[in-house]
Design a protein around this nucleic acid. Structure first.
Lengths: 344, 344
DNA sequence: CATAGTCCCGTAAACGTTTACGGTGGCCGA
DNA sequence: TCGGCCACCGTAAACGTTTACGGGACTATG
């Protein structure tokens, strides 16, 4: 005799009642419910997830898909981890388990997702590293699997998303730099087709246009979103005749490499070039201090989880008024890296 | 009519035969098996994992537990990801799904593991960030859950493990540095109780002793295993009166921060101090080039997976002669960072 | 022809839940 | 007294598999 049956026998009660008691159904006497819960802890009963899944066609698992090709992050080691933390705290409240689905760099993300879905692995998914055109969206939509994405895409199947505020970042950065007399402003973007890069470049161009300036295509640097990428950007920049006087770094970690590349040539951010980037735990150790945007990654994760739950019928009533799509605000932390200004 | 039943009906055959055909049982006519497989792809049948799990008490999932407190890695962003890749390729052969279980920095790893196990989540586990004394081992052993650890521990319940070759690294490093005239050799270690730190320090002391030298306790630097940690180590080192002339960096990423900390004070690895570390994708962009150890992370992952499977009854016959415990060799890549030598 | 053996297949139970359905007993109002 | 309602509980089916068991058809052997 195992499982719920054992509990029932021990209490001389039917298994139906035990199940109802454990699941918080209303049609069970509070006194018997108390006894059931007591016996459950006493006997160390934990419900069998397979049985439950089989019966109600739900796994209680949410998957957070990341790609190792982007070095799990592309935003610095801790970025996704903090977001993950936030997501996890929300799901824990609903007894949902969160796991990370790491798609190898050698496997096609679309194939990987197909496998995950075919297996009926998760009740819902969180997607990151969203591409400019992302086939995964349509796939999940036709399978009617709830999902939310961290990052917009041109592909739109009506799913909720959260994203960074590239418009805001570009605008305040550009305004700030133009006010300091800069005209030749460079911009970095990840080398792959992740949508983030497109957005940031577009918004930067827009912000420049507001000042009657154009974004020089020669000043758009594609790089891997990691330290090495930043280092390369610096090297490219050093070889230019008509060097930009300011640069925007969209990814977090590349600032590290960029600083190093610069310093090897004897250049210094804030003195020889104005740099605006994104804050990260690592960037606090940069010198001169980085002027950059910051956001609460944990809160971002929480919002991501809530947006997903709001679309899942079983949980939506908990989150009646969640904005399904939202651009996440960032604050600018002023440092010394953009102190460099030009006479006007 | 759903699932296997639908297939059976479509072929006018019993569900038992269908199941046997799909699972590669011998007692089924090859001709009917062919038909079944054909129909399966035609109808897009995929077995329901819940049903299967319920029946045979197995989930076909392997969990790779990592901790976000150590910034998923503590070894640099890509370390675990490459290992993960290797593990995944092995498991894919056996139709096992690998997921990452990320324990939040705010949650106790032991509690987290308890939850995972109670839920019956995985058939097997891979543990990383092994502590010097690790309660998780005993817990899993009593629950009879197959697991393998990346890293040794003083806690030993007979489980297989793989680990880095700290003895080898310490010995070749020390020998090399002593041969260059160094006597005051510093060592870094992670600030927490992860076993790796203890081992590396111990082995370094042993290697020094072989030359009649002692490891000065004042030359053991505890640091976070990331860039910031390396930066701090450099800062600490700079304030010392009797500075060491050489240093061993056990973690991969800390070299980055260490270099930066040094260069801010006008010091240079290889000229003012000898540095030996560990190679990483990022370290290739260090200048002067790093002398450091390297290993095939992917192969490490493969070995890890095989070690686990060898202990699981259902798979052990595939891996009859896998060494259950193994120290993973590393090669030294010579760079310029340890060029600094002393007159003897 | 009888017997044993082999190959293949069908039947049905079992895994641990959830839940629709119906039933019992008590209470209340007419 | 009786019908109806309510609160609570028991029964049993269902979810989709796997697998032990047995049986039928055929072949080989005596």
């Amino acid at each position: 005799m195992t499982g719920i049956r054992r509990l029932a026998q021990h209490l001389d009660i039917s298994i139906g009642t035990v199940s109802r008691a454990l699941n918080g159904r209303p049609d069970v006497n509070e006194e018997t419910r108390r006894k059931v819960l007591e016996a459950a802890t006493e006997l160390g009963y934990v419900p069998n997830q397979s049985g439950r899944s089989l019966r109600q066609g739900t796994t209680n698992i949410i998957g957070f898909m990341m790609q190792t090709g982007t070095e799990i992050t592309g935003q610095g080691d801790t970025f996704f981890m903090s977001v993950f933390d936030g997501v996890q705290t929300v799901f824990a409240r609903h007894h949902l388990d969160l796991v990370a689905l790491l798609c190898s760099s050698e496997e096609d993300p679309d194939d990987y997702l197909r496998r995950v879905v075919a297996r009926g692995f998760a009740d819902g998914l969180i997607l990151s590293a969203t591409q400019r055109h992302d086939p995964r969206f349509e796939f999940l939509a036709t399978r009617k699997i709830p999902f939310v994405t961290l990052g917009r895409s041109l592909t739109d199947v009506g799913q909720p998303w959260l994203d960074l505020d590239f418009e805001g970042m570009a605008q305040t950065s550009i305004d700030r730099l133009v006010a300091k007399g800069h005209r030749r402003i460079a911009v970095t973007r990840p080398h792959d087709d992740v949508n983030l890069g497109h957005l940031f470049v577009d918004q930067s161009a827009k912000a420049l246009a507001a000042h009657g300036l154009a974004l020089d295509p020669g000043l758009i640097f594609s790089s891997k979103p990691n330290e090495a990428g930043g280092y390369h950007v610096a090297q490219q920049l050093l070889t230019m005749k008509d060097r930009p006087t300011a640069i925007l770094l969209v990814n977090e970690t590349i600032a590290i490499g960029f600083y190093r590349g610069l310093s090897e040539a004897g250049l210094k951010p804030g003195r020889d070039i104005a740099v605006i980037g994104r804050q990260s735990p690592q960037s606090h150790f940069l010198s001169p201090s980085l002027t950059g945007f910051t956001l609460s990654r944990r809160d971002l994760g929480i919002a991501l989880a809530e947006a997903l739950l709001a679309t899942m019928p079983a949980f939506s009533h908990f989150y009646p008024d969640v904005e399904p799509r939202k651009v996440w605000p960032e604050d600018l932390v002023e440092g010394e890296s953009d102190a460099f200004s030009l006479p006007t």
